[in-house]
Design a protein around this nucleic acid. Structure first.
Ligand SMILES: [Mn+2]
Ligand SMILES: [Mn+2]
Ligand SMILES: [Zn+2]
Ligand SMILES: [Zn+2]
Lengths: 146, 146
DNA sequence: CTTCTTATTGAAAAACATTTTCAATAATAT
DNA sequence: ATATTATTGAAAATGTTTTTCAATAAGAAG
């Protein structure tokens, strides 16, 4: 079962109606390998449903985020970019060249948390880790062009 | 030498003039233990310089950020909160109750980066790590009041 | 201290992003 | 088929950040 069908199913299970505008938005986001701004989602969605309104994009993004299907990706300039959500304990690695974003897991911060908790009196309940770097394609281009 | 004087010095060294509005803004930010929104900086600055304009706040924030004196703190809902910048390799730990933010260091992600690089072909150049939790004061209040 | 240069200021307007309102439409259950 | 009601897009409202511009004042120079 592909991601689009999964998302549609989740929406249906939560009493949402499946409409043409929503299908267009879901398709754009579910298949994107980089984080998109609301405005970009709007533009790209118009390819499959030209009559779509920007308002509907915002409303659908909110739904998808609340259902845990999409997630924010932060960047230096802003934090309103959206990507298919991570599964469980995964984090994003964002290419600073082209924006292509992949997921990774396996960070082990338990020891760090323990040390911080005993040293500061704070209790650590959540962490947010995001990596930046260069994807193979961008590095290759950089080497040949610069 | 306290932080306010340090910041003033850095500004002067970079050809900036020290004005009353700037002093007000610097004082607010340099002494804050939690991240502030531009609007909050504005309100708090009016205490020491009532005639200040919001525009000046935005302009000064940009300066301070460019000079590396303040830094953004990210939160679930937004990333436009500002704090005195970390020194070197430090990260923030934000209390989700009161917003009080402290710094820590000593995260060792080298092994993780190496594994990701060899596994994905990406090169990791930068990382953002931010922790969320509860400060001692908030935890105590939570226990007695709830 | 006085004069000069020019960075800085605040008001107002503009630009931009996001949310609310509302009547019309269409998805879904019956 | 029909009824219910979630969803839609246009328009207006809201909130945030930036730009424009003439007046001001900080700091350098004499
Ligand atoms: Mn993690
Ligand atoms: Mn680190
Ligand atoms: Zn890339
Ligand atoms: Zn707290």
């Amino acid at each position: 079962m592909n991601r689009i069908d999964q998302w549609v199913k989740v929406l249906q299970e939560n009493g949402c109606r499946i409409t043409a505008p929503r299908r267009a938005i879901i398709q754009v986001l579910a298949e994107s390998h980089r984080a998109l701004q609301p405005n970009e989602v709007y533009e790209l969605s118009r390819a499959s449903y030209s009559g779509i309104g920007l308002v509907t994009v915002y409303r659908t993004l909110e739904r998808l985020e609340n259902l845990g299907l999409i997630q924010r990706v932060h960047r230096e300039d802003g934090c309103h970019l959206l990507m298919p959500a991570a599964n469980g304990h995964e984090h994003y690695l964002v290419c600073t060249g082209c924006g292509r974003t992949i997921l990774f897991e396996g960070d082990d911060l338990g020891a760090l948390f323990a040390r911080i908790e005993s040293g500061t009196g704070y209790r650590v309940s959540d962490h947010w880790l995001q990596l930046f770097g260069t994807c193979p394609e961008c590095r290759e281009m950089g080497q040949t062009h610069n």
